[in-house]
Amino acid sequence: MSLYTAAKTILSAIFYPLYRIRVIGKENVPKHGPVIICSNHISNFDPPVIGITSPRDIYFMAKGELFERVFLRKLLRAIHAFPVKRGMKDRNALRQGLQILEDGKTLGLFPEGTRSKTGTLGKPMAGAGFFALRSNAAIVPCAIIGPYKPGKKLTVIYGEPMDMEAHRSAKTNAKDAADAIMVEIGKLIENYNPQHASLDK
């Protein structure tokens, strides 16, 4: 068993009952080929929650400072994290993200770039649009809804893959493409109705 699989198993055993996690639309994540899962960002726990609810292994960017210690660097890489220098254009991180997609794997992104302190959607950075336009990956919008409080329900919704071909053909700029992705994330949040949500663990 890989460290990634072991971590996913352990975190699932903790997080699912602790936050009463409900997963909707897991079938919308393509089983094969490159995928970018784009989610809103409300907590430091968002990456592991998406990691345990997604049917596919996910690669996430993590702030470069975390990779300065040898042990932590090895651990993060083992669970599919790679470094990014925040506050600047990190070409190495961009290249690594594109390589992950070229290899047919799944990249997890938070278009806002930072956590929302109020829980409302913020404006996206251009990064998600860059990866969406520079790859042939399926773009799956994702919404995390609910408080991270023990005993309270936390819902993770995976929307249907977006059709980005029109944006690619029109050579839409990265910021506008990121805006389009955020609109779909916003729709998931706006249309969510807990009374009619099905459970899909």
Rank of each mutant, 00 (worst) to 15 (best):
M164R: 03
A138P: 04
G97A: 05
D176A: 15
D103N: 09
G113L: 04
K149C: 01
P141A: 09
P194M: 08
Q96F: 15
S169H: 05
I100P: 03
R168S: 00
P150R: 06
I157T: 04
L154V: 08
Q99H: 03
L109G: 02
E165N: 14
P83R: 11
I185H: 07
Y59V: 02
I181P: 03
N191V: 12
Q195V: 04
V183F: 00
G159H: 02
V84P: 06
R134G: 00
A78H: 10
R168L: 00
A138G: 01
A166K: 10
D176N: 13
E160Y: 06
R168C: 04
F131K: 01
A132E: 01
M61T: 15
V156M: 14
M125D: 05
A132N: 02
T172K: 06
A78R: 11
R115T: 08
E184N: 09
M125W: 00
D90S: 04
A78Y: 06
G104L: 13
H167N: 07
I185L: 03
L109M: 11
K153Q: 08
P147L: 10
L98V: 07
G151K: 07
L75F: 14
P141Q: 11
F60W: 14
L101V: 07
I144C: 06
K149N: 00
A174T: 09
